[in-house]
Protein backbone atom coordinates (compact mmCIF):
# COMPACT_ATOMS: atom_id res chain seq x y z
CA UNK A 1 0.00 0.00 0.00
CA UNK A 2 2.97 2.32 0.48
CA UNK A 3 3.35 2.78 -3.24
CA UNK A 4 -0.34 3.55 -3.54
CA UNK A 5 -0.06 6.36 -1.01
CA UNK A 6 3.26 7.80 -2.07
CA UNK A 7 2.10 8.83 -5.51
CA UNK A 8 -0.96 10.84 -4.41
CA UNK A 9 1.09 12.45 -1.64
CA UNK A 10 3.72 13.55 -4.13
CA UNK A 11 1.04 14.84 -6.50
CA UNK A 12 -0.61 16.79 -3.68
CA UNK A 13 2.74 18.29 -2.67
CA UNK A 14 3.41 19.37 -6.22
CA UNK A 15 -0.09 20.85 -6.54
CA UNK A 16 0.37 22.81 -3.33
CA UNK A 17 3.75 24.08 -4.48
CA UNK A 18 2.23 25.13 -7.78
CA UNK A 19 -0.54 27.00 -6.01
CA UNK A 20 1.95 28.81 -3.77
CA UNK A 21 4.14 29.81 -6.70
CA UNK A 22 1.20 30.77 -8.97
CA UNK A 23 0.74 34.44 -7.95
CA UNK A 24 4.50 35.00 -8.18
CA UNK A 25 4.46 33.85 -11.79
CA UNK A 26 1.06 35.15 -12.86
CA UNK A 27 0.93 38.68 -11.50
CA UNK A 28 -2.06 39.84 -13.56
CA UNK A 29 -5.02 40.69 -11.34
CA UNK A 30 -7.71 38.87 -13.33
CA UNK A 31 -6.29 35.32 -13.21
CA UNK A 32 -5.58 35.85 -9.52
CA UNK A 33 -9.17 37.00 -9.05
CA UNK A 34 -10.46 33.83 -10.73
CA UNK A 35 -8.26 31.71 -8.49
CA UNK A 36 -9.52 33.55 -5.40
CA UNK A 37 -13.12 32.85 -6.47
CA UNK A 38 -12.25 29.19 -7.01
CA UNK A 39 -10.76 28.97 -3.52
CA UNK A 40 -13.73 30.79 -1.99
CA UNK A 41 -16.35 28.56 -3.59
CA UNK A 42 -14.32 25.39 -3.06
CA UNK A 43 -14.17 26.33 0.60
CA UNK A 44 -17.90 26.98 0.81
CA UNK A 45 -18.68 23.86 -1.22
CA UNK A 46 -16.67 21.93 1.36
CA UNK A 47 -18.57 23.71 4.12
CA UNK A 48 -21.86 22.61 2.56
CA UNK A 49 -20.38 19.16 2.14
CA UNK A 50 -20.57 18.61 5.89
CA UNK A 51 -24.35 19.07 6.16
CA UNK A 52 -25.27 18.10 2.60
CA UNK A 53 -22.60 15.56 1.73
CA UNK A 54 -21.80 13.76 4.95
CA UNK A 55 -25.11 14.22 6.79
CA UNK A 56 -27.22 14.15 3.61
CA UNK A 57 -29.47 17.12 4.43
CA UNK A 58 -29.96 19.26 1.33
CA UNK A 59 -29.65 22.82 2.59
CA UNK A 60 -30.39 25.44 -0.06
CA UNK A 61 -30.03 28.45 2.21
CA UNK A 62 -26.33 28.74 2.94
CA UNK A 63 -26.30 32.36 1.77
CA UNK A 64 -27.86 33.14 5.18
CA UNK A 65 -24.56 32.34 6.87
CA UNK A 66 -22.49 33.95 4.15
CA UNK A 67 -24.43 37.16 4.78
CA UNK A 68 -24.22 36.89 8.55
CA UNK A 69 -20.42 36.54 8.33
CA UNK A 70 -20.17 39.50 5.97
CA UNK A 71 -22.47 41.78 7.98
CA UNK A 72 -20.92 40.92 11.36
CA UNK A 73 -17.45 41.65 10.08
CA UNK A 74 -18.36 44.93 8.40
CA UNK A 75 -20.48 46.26 11.27
CA UNK A 76 -17.90 45.46 13.96
CA UNK A 77 -15.34 47.26 11.83
CA UNK A 78 -17.60 50.23 11.11
CA UNK A 79 -18.95 50.82 14.61
CA UNK A 80 -16.26 49.48 16.94
CA UNK A 81 -13.19 49.57 14.71
CA UNK A 82 -12.53 45.91 15.39
CA UNK A 83 -10.15 44.03 13.10
CA UNK A 84 -11.91 41.96 10.41
CA UNK A 85 -10.23 38.91 11.89
CA UNK A 86 -12.13 39.50 15.13
CA UNK A 87 -15.24 40.12 13.02
CA UNK A 88 -14.65 36.84 11.29
CA UNK A 89 -14.54 34.97 14.59
CA UNK A 90 -17.62 36.75 15.96
CA UNK A 91 -19.38 36.18 12.62
CA UNK A 92 -18.72 32.46 12.89
CA UNK A 93 -20.14 32.43 16.42
CA UNK A 94 -23.22 34.34 15.21
CA UNK A 95 -23.63 31.91 12.32
CA UNK A 96 -23.50 28.97 14.72
CA UNK A 97 -26.14 30.55 16.96
CA UNK A 98 -28.44 31.34 14.03
CA UNK A 99 -27.91 27.89 12.51
CA UNK A 100 -29.03 26.21 15.72
CA UNK A 101 -32.10 28.45 16.02
CA UNK A 102 -33.08 27.96 12.37
CA UNK A 103 -31.94 24.35 12.15
CA UNK A 104 -33.97 23.13 15.08
CA UNK A 105 -37.39 23.54 13.43
CA UNK A 106 -36.04 22.61 9.98
CA UNK A 107 -34.62 19.29 11.08
CA UNK A 108 -38.05 18.05 12.03
CA UNK A 109 -38.63 17.53 8.33
CA UNK A 110 -36.56 15.98 5.58
CA UNK A 111 -36.02 15.91 1.85
CA UNK A 112 -37.77 18.56 -0.19
CA UNK A 113 -39.50 20.01 2.86
CA UNK A 114 -36.14 20.72 4.46
CA UNK A 115 -34.68 22.17 1.27
CA UNK A 116 -37.60 24.57 0.80
CA UNK A 117 -37.52 25.52 4.50
CA UNK A 118 -33.90 26.64 4.16
CA UNK A 119 -34.81 28.75 1.11
CA UNK A 120 -37.73 30.32 2.98
CA UNK A 121 -35.58 31.14 6.02
CA UNK A 122 -32.93 32.74 3.85
CA UNK A 123 -35.63 34.93 2.30
CA UNK A 124 -36.87 35.90 5.76
CA UNK A 125 -33.38 36.85 6.94
CA UNK A 126 -32.73 38.79 3.71
CA UNK A 127 -36.01 40.72 4.12
CA UNK A 128 -35.13 41.61 7.71
CA UNK A 129 -31.74 42.97 6.65
CA UNK A 130 -33.28 44.87 3.73
CA UNK A 131 -35.64 46.68 6.09
CA UNK A 132 -33.18 47.23 8.94
CA UNK A 133 -31.84 50.79 8.90
CA UNK A 134 -28.97 50.15 11.32
CA UNK A 135 -27.32 47.73 8.89
CA UNK A 136 -27.82 50.04 5.93
CA UNK A 137 -31.13 48.62 4.72
CA UNK A 138 -31.43 47.96 1.02
CA UNK A 139 -28.59 50.40 0.25
CA UNK A 140 -25.97 48.26 1.99
CA UNK A 141 -22.70 49.32 3.59
CA UNK A 142 -19.43 50.53 2.13
CA UNK A 143 -16.60 49.07 4.15
CA UNK A 144 -14.42 51.79 5.73
CA UNK A 145 -11.13 51.91 3.85
CA UNK A 146 -8.17 51.19 6.12
CA UNK A 147 -4.42 51.25 5.50
CA UNK A 148 -3.16 48.08 3.87
CA UNK A 149 -2.18 45.43 6.36
CA UNK A 150 -2.73 41.85 7.30
CA UNK A 151 -4.44 42.90 10.54
CA UNK A 152 -6.86 45.13 8.62
CA UNK A 153 -7.42 42.42 5.98
CA UNK A 154 -7.34 45.08 3.28
CA UNK A 155 -4.91 45.28 0.41
CA UNK A 156 -5.40 47.88 -2.27
CA UNK A 157 -2.46 47.51 -4.63
CA UNK A 158 -2.43 43.79 -5.31
CA UNK A 159 -4.68 40.78 -5.03
CA UNK A 160 -1.79 38.50 -4.07
CA UNK A 161 -2.32 38.78 -0.27
CA UNK A 162 -6.02 37.92 -0.71
CA UNK A 163 -4.91 34.97 -2.81
CA UNK A 164 -2.77 33.54 -0.02
CA UNK A 165 -5.40 34.17 2.64
CA UNK A 166 -8.06 32.42 0.55
CA UNK A 167 -5.70 29.54 -0.16
CA UNK A 168 -4.90 29.25 3.55
CA UNK A 169 -8.59 29.18 4.45
CA UNK A 170 -9.26 26.55 1.80
CA UNK A 171 -6.47 24.33 3.11
CA UNK A 172 -7.89 24.68 6.62
CA UNK A 173 -11.37 23.65 5.48
CA UNK A 174 -9.97 20.74 3.45
CA UNK A 175 -8.16 19.45 6.53
CA UNK A 176 -11.31 19.86 8.62
CA UNK A 177 -13.31 17.89 6.03
CA UNK A 178 -10.72 15.11 6.04
CA UNK A 179 -10.88 15.04 9.81
CA UNK A 180 -14.69 14.96 9.87
CA UNK A 181 -14.69 12.19 7.28
CA UNK A 182 -12.47 10.04 9.47
CA UNK A 183 -13.82 10.91 12.90
CA UNK A 184 -16.61 9.28 14.85
CA UNK A 185 -18.68 12.36 14.00
CA UNK A 186 -18.31 11.54 10.31
CA UNK A 187 -19.63 8.02 10.87
CA UNK A 188 -22.65 9.41 12.69
CA UNK A 189 -23.28 11.86 9.86
CA UNK A 190 -23.05 9.15 7.21
CA UNK A 191 -25.31 6.87 9.21
CA UNK A 192 -27.92 9.64 9.26
CA UNK A 193 -27.53 10.12 5.52
CA UNK A 194 -27.85 6.42 4.74
CA UNK A 195 -30.98 5.84 6.83
CA UNK A 196 -31.91 8.17 9.60
CA UNK A 197 -34.49 5.85 11.12
CA UNK A 198 -31.93 3.09 11.35
CA UNK A 199 -29.40 5.58 12.77
CA UNK A 200 -31.90 6.60 15.43
CA UNK A 201 -32.65 3.02 16.33
CA UNK A 202 -28.91 2.53 16.90
CA UNK A 203 -29.03 5.26 19.51
CA UNK A 204 -27.73 8.21 17.51
CA UNK A 205 -29.40 11.44 18.55
CA UNK A 206 -30.08 12.48 14.97
CA UNK A 207 -31.32 16.02 15.63
CA UNK A 208 -28.24 16.72 17.73
CA UNK A 209 -25.82 15.47 15.09
CA UNK A 210 -27.65 17.25 12.29
CA UNK A 211 -27.38 20.44 14.31
CA UNK A 212 -23.66 19.86 14.84
CA UNK A 213 -23.16 19.32 11.11
CA UNK A 214 -25.25 22.37 10.27
CA UNK A 215 -23.37 24.55 12.77
CA UNK A 216 -20.04 23.51 11.24
CA UNK A 217 -21.36 24.33 7.76
CA UNK A 218 -22.70 27.68 8.97
CA UNK A 219 -19.46 28.68 10.70
CA UNK A 220 -17.30 27.83 7.69
CA UNK A 221 -19.69 29.52 5.26
CA UNK A 222 -19.64 32.68 7.38
CA UNK A 223 -15.83 32.75 7.11
CA UNK A 224 -16.32 32.91 3.36
CA UNK A 225 -18.74 35.81 3.79
CA UNK A 226 -16.33 37.71 6.05
CA UNK A 227 -13.54 37.25 3.54
CA UNK A 228 -15.79 38.32 0.68
CA UNK A 229 -16.83 41.53 2.46
CA UNK A 230 -13.20 42.56 2.90
CA UNK A 231 -12.33 41.53 -0.64
CA UNK A 232 -15.17 43.42 -2.35
CA UNK A 233 -15.41 46.22 0.28
CA UNK A 234 -19.15 46.66 -0.24
CA UNK A 235 -22.08 44.56 0.91
CA UNK A 236 -25.83 44.75 0.51
CA UNK A 237 -28.63 42.24 1.15
CA UNK A 238 -29.12 41.30 -2.51
CA UNK A 239 -25.48 40.41 -3.00
CA UNK A 240 -24.65 38.54 0.22
CA UNK A 241 -28.00 36.82 0.87
CA UNK A 242 -28.44 35.92 -2.80
CA UNK A 243 -30.05 32.58 -3.51
CA UNK A 244 -27.51 32.21 -6.31
CA UNK A 245 -24.78 31.86 -3.66
CA UNK A 246 -26.63 29.03 -1.93
CA UNK A 247 -27.17 27.39 -5.28
CA UNK A 248 -23.61 27.73 -6.52
CA UNK A 249 -22.21 26.34 -3.27
CA UNK A 250 -24.32 23.22 -3.64
CA UNK A 251 -23.68 22.89 -7.37
CA UNK A 252 -19.96 22.96 -6.75
CA UNK A 253 -20.32 20.02 -4.37
CA UNK A 254 -22.82 18.09 -6.47
CA UNK A 255 -20.82 18.46 -9.66
CA UNK A 256 -17.63 17.27 -8.02
CA UNK A 257 -19.23 14.62 -5.88
CA UNK A 258 -21.01 14.97 -2.55
CA UNK A 259 -19.48 13.45 0.54
CA UNK A 260 -15.96 13.51 -0.84
CA UNK A 261 -13.18 15.98 -0.09
CA UNK A 262 -11.87 16.30 -3.64
CA UNK A 263 -15.38 16.72 -5.09
CA UNK A 264 -16.20 20.32 -4.11
CA UNK A 265 -12.68 21.44 -5.05
CA UNK A 266 -12.94 19.89 -8.51
CA UNK A 267 -16.49 21.23 -8.84
CA UNK A 268 -15.38 24.75 -7.97
CA UNK A 269 -12.53 24.68 -10.47
CA UNK A 270 -14.88 23.58 -13.26
CA UNK A 271 -17.88 25.76 -12.43
CA UNK A 272 -16.01 28.98 -11.68
CA UNK A 273 -13.84 28.63 -14.78
CA UNK A 274 -16.94 27.95 -16.84
CA UNK A 275 -18.98 30.81 -15.45
CA UNK A 276 -16.05 33.24 -15.73
CA UNK A 277 -15.23 31.89 -19.19
CA UNK A 278 -18.76 32.22 -20.54
CA UNK A 279 -19.01 35.63 -18.91
CA UNK A 280 -15.84 36.87 -20.58
CA UNK A 281 -16.78 35.36 -23.95
CA UNK A 282 -20.52 36.02 -23.99
CA UNK A 283 -21.28 38.32 -21.07
CA UNK A 284 -21.27 42.09 -21.13
CA UNK A 285 -24.31 42.12 -23.37
CA UNK A 286 -26.42 42.24 -20.23
CA UNK A 287 -28.60 39.57 -21.76
CA UNK A 288 -27.60 36.64 -19.61
CA UNK A 289 -26.60 34.26 -22.40
CA UNK A 290 -23.74 33.09 -20.18
CA UNK A 291 -26.20 32.21 -17.42
CA UNK A 292 -28.40 30.34 -19.91
CA UNK A 293 -25.47 28.18 -20.96
CA UNK A 294 -24.61 27.65 -17.34
CA UNK A 295 -28.17 26.43 -16.69
CA UNK A 296 -27.97 24.07 -19.65
CA UNK A 297 -24.77 22.69 -18.27
CA UNK A 298 -26.28 22.09 -14.85
CA UNK A 299 -29.10 20.10 -16.49
CA UNK A 300 -26.65 18.15 -18.61
CA UNK A 301 -24.55 17.25 -15.58
CA UNK A 302 -27.51 16.13 -13.52
CA UNK A 303 -28.75 13.91 -16.34
CA UNK A 304 -25.42 12.52 -17.53
CA UNK A 305 -23.47 12.36 -14.30
CA UNK A 306 -25.91 12.39 -11.36
CA UNK A 307 -23.31 11.00 -8.94
CA UNK A 308 -20.64 13.62 -9.60
CA UNK A 309 -17.22 13.61 -11.18
CA UNK A 310 -15.39 11.88 -8.35
CA UNK A 311 -17.83 8.95 -8.50
CA UNK A 312 -17.39 8.88 -12.25
CA UNK A 313 -13.59 8.71 -11.95
CA UNK A 314 -13.91 5.93 -9.36
CA UNK A 315 -16.43 4.18 -11.58
CA UNK A 316 -13.79 4.01 -14.30
CA UNK A 317 -11.70 1.93 -11.96
CA UNK A 318 -14.41 -0.12 -10.32
CA UNK A 319 -17.60 -1.79 -11.49
CA UNK A 320 -20.39 0.80 -11.34
CA UNK A 321 -22.31 -1.09 -8.66
CA UNK A 322 -20.01 0.12 -5.87
CA UNK A 323 -21.05 3.73 -6.25
CA UNK A 324 -21.26 4.94 -2.69
CA UNK A 325 -22.44 8.50 -3.08
CA UNK A 326 -26.14 7.84 -2.83
CA UNK A 327 -28.01 10.49 -0.94
CA UNK A 328 -31.07 9.26 0.86
CA UNK A 329 -34.23 10.14 -0.93
CA UNK A 330 -37.29 8.66 -2.50
CA UNK A 331 -35.94 6.04 -4.86
CA UNK A 332 -38.38 4.07 -6.94
Amino acid sequence: MVRGKLLPAAALGLLLLGLIVFPLVVTLPYPQHVMILIFLYAMMGLAWNIIGGYAGQVSLGDATYFGIGAYTTVILLRDLGLSPWVGMAVGAVNAVIVSVILGYPCFRVRGHYFAIATIALNEIVATIFTNWEYVGGAVGIYVPILPESFVNLQFHRSKTPYYYIALGMLIGVVLLNVWVGRSRLGYYFRAIRADQDAARSLGIDITRYKLIAYAMTAALTSLGGSFYSMYVLYIDPTSVFAFSISLLVVLVAVLGGVGTVAGPVIGSIILISLSEGTRVLLGGTGRALDVAIYGLLVMAISVLQPYGIVAWIRGLRRPPKTREVKVAGPAA
Partner: peptide
Protein backbone atom coordinates in the same frame (compact mmCIF):
# COMPACT_ATOMS: atom_id res chain seq x y z
CA UNK B 1 -30.35 10.61 -6.17
CA UNK B 2 -32.70 13.36 -4.98
CA UNK B 3 -29.88 15.90 -5.30
CA UNK B 4 -29.53 15.25 -9.02
CA UNK B 5 -33.29 15.61 -9.44
CA UNK B 6 -33.30 18.91 -7.58
CA UNK B 7 -30.47 20.21 -9.71
CA UNK B 8 -31.98 19.13 -12.93
CA UNK B 9 -35.11 21.22 -12.42
CA UNK B 10 -33.03 24.04 -10.89
CA UNK B 11 -30.85 24.04 -13.98
CA UNK B 12 -33.98 24.20 -16.10
CA UNK B 13 -35.21 27.14 -14.03
CA UNK B 14 -31.94 29.05 -14.45
Amino acid sequence: PMLAQIFCTFGLSV
